[in-house]
């Protein structure tokens, strides 16, 4: 299983701090696309992704047990 954490407005859109799903074998881009459809999320473009607290690329493959975090850039200041 994989824990997927959401921050800022993605958290509001999903309605939970995190979900647990089986994402092993998928790329980060595939997982983004799947979640976007499932939760009717705002665009994932520019959303930064970390696997096990390390910045990762769209093409990275998720392994069993990995923790994924989606951090959308916010613009206020």
């Amino acid at each position: 299983m994989n824990k997927v954490l959401f921050f800022a407005h993605l958290r509001e859109a999903v309605g939970k701090d995190y979900i647990e799903i089986d994402a092993a074998g998928k790329t980060v881009a595939q997982l983004k696309e799947e979640l976007q459809k499932q939760y009717d999320l705002p665009r994932f473009e520019s959303v930064m992704t970390a696997i096990n607290e390390e910045f990762c690329q769209e093409t990275d493959v998720i392994r069993e047990g990995d923790e994924i975090a989606f951090i959308p850039p916010v613009s206020g200041g």
Binding site: A8, H9, P42, R43, E45, S46, M48, F55, P72, P73, V74, S75, G76
Partner: peptide, 10 residues
């Protein structure tokens, strides 16, 4: 980090 200009940020 962002690759492109984020659209409609909060």
């Amino acid at each position: 980090l962002l690759k492109s200009l984020p659209l409609q940020g909060m």
